[in-house]
């Protein structure tokens, strides 16, 4: 299991043990973390699982694909640290990853 910390827009922290192979979005859903809607169910089609990734483990993440870049244009208040959490596959070396959820996904 890999520990991932989800921090809400108003600072509430939740640490979830996520099974490698799942996505950061699925980890949030299974762990009951609010703030990630994932309307499309995790296929990079809706932009509602947007998170900001803290710098500490950002280099462990695979690069964004073209689809994700395009969908981030649609997501609310996206910035340089923005990712779609359905596109981040959790791997063992991501232990301690911190992601922040936006105030709203819509």
């Amino acid at each position: 299991m890999v520990k991932i910390t989800y921090i809400s827009h108003d600072g509430e922290e939740r640490v979830v043990d996520v099974q490698p192979g799942l996505s950061v979005m699925e980890g949030a859903k299974r762990g009951g973390v609010p703030g990630i809607d994932a309307d499309c169910g995790g296929c990079c089609a809706c932009g509602t699982c947007h998170v900001y990734v803290d710098g500490n483990r950002r280099d462990r993440l695979s690069a964004k694909k073209e689809d994700e870049e395009a969908m981030l244009d649609y997501a609310e208040r996206a910035g340089p640290s923005s990712r779609l959490s359905c596109q981040i596959k959790v791997t063992e070396d991501m232990e301690g990853l911190i992601v922040r959820t936006p105030k709203s996904q819509h």
């Binding site: 609010p34 309307d39 499309c40 169910g41 296929c43 809706c46 509602t48 819509h106």
Partner: peptide, 22 residues
């Protein structure tokens, strides 16, 4: 409560206009 729903569909075709609808 916060339950999932598929009122906007699910998968690649989930509603593109959901933001306007909301």
């Amino acid at each position: 409560r916060s339950c999932p729903h598929i009122t906007f569909g699910a998968g690649p075709h989930s509603c593109a206009g959901a933001r306007l609808a909301r």
